[in-house]
């Protein structure tokens, strides 16, 4: 007999696959995805492993993996997949689900928050602010510091950021997106 927890996991996994438009049975584990994945060396669950987890019903391993945060979205896996299994879609959906379930990789969380703050303030991405704030918050204050003097000398990064004028509109848009995202489009 399946436990309640198992049933709930299965329902969540089925929902995830449906939203991602991925069918777990399409994958026959050939490994061409992982073979070509530029980030495979750093992933604790390789792209093929993600598909394997969908087959054996282990949602937890997917949402707790670093894979969903390290995937660069380069789409090499699905490009070469003989069955066109859209792993990037699955990973993106898994990221939303992981966020709902409270499993967000720390560095990704900091970066996303800094990014969003940036957009709220300027409507555009202020690269120095993004990198600087991220480095401080993620306790890597020295990351890329050697390049800063070069960037400042050549005015590659400025103190006064370029920006979208209508930041009020941008903030309204972000608020709406956050509000509506609980009603995500069903016809994915």
């Amino acid at each position: 007999m399946q436990s309640e927890k198992q049933k709930e996991q299965k329902e969540k996994l089925d929902e995830l696959l449906r939203k991602a438009d991925v069918r777990q049975y399409d994958c026959y584990q050939c490994g061409k995805c992982t073979g070509g994945c530029p980030m495979a060396h750093a992933m604790d669950l390789k792209p093929r492993g993600v598909m394997r987890c969908t087959q054996i019903g282990s949602l937890e391993r997917i949402v707790k993996s670093n894979t969903i945060w390290l995937c660069t979205g380069c789409h090499t896996c699905v490009e070469r997949c003989p069955h066109d299994v859209n792993i990037p879609n699955l990973i993106e959906e898994a990221r939303y689900l992981a966020a709902e379930m409270g499993y967000v990789r720390r560095d990704s969380k900091i970066l996303n928050e800094v990014f969003l703050a940036n957009i709220r303030m300027f409507g555009r991405n202020h690269e120095m602010l993004l990198a600087g704030l991220y480095n401080m918050l993620s306790l890597k204050p020295l990351q890329d510091m050697p390049t800063v003097p070069h960037m400042l000398t050549h005015k590659l990064i400025g103190v006064l950021p370029h920006q979208t004028k209508n930041t009020a509109g941008i903030n309204r848009m972000i608020a709406r997106a956050e509000k509506f995202s609980s009603m995500r489009p069903a016809g994915k």
């Binding site: 957009i119 409507g123 995202s181």
Partner: peptide
Amino acid sequence: NCCGATSGHALNEL
């Protein structure tokens, strides 16, 4: 405005 790459779609599809 910023296109959202790459954090824009990391946590919120919409």
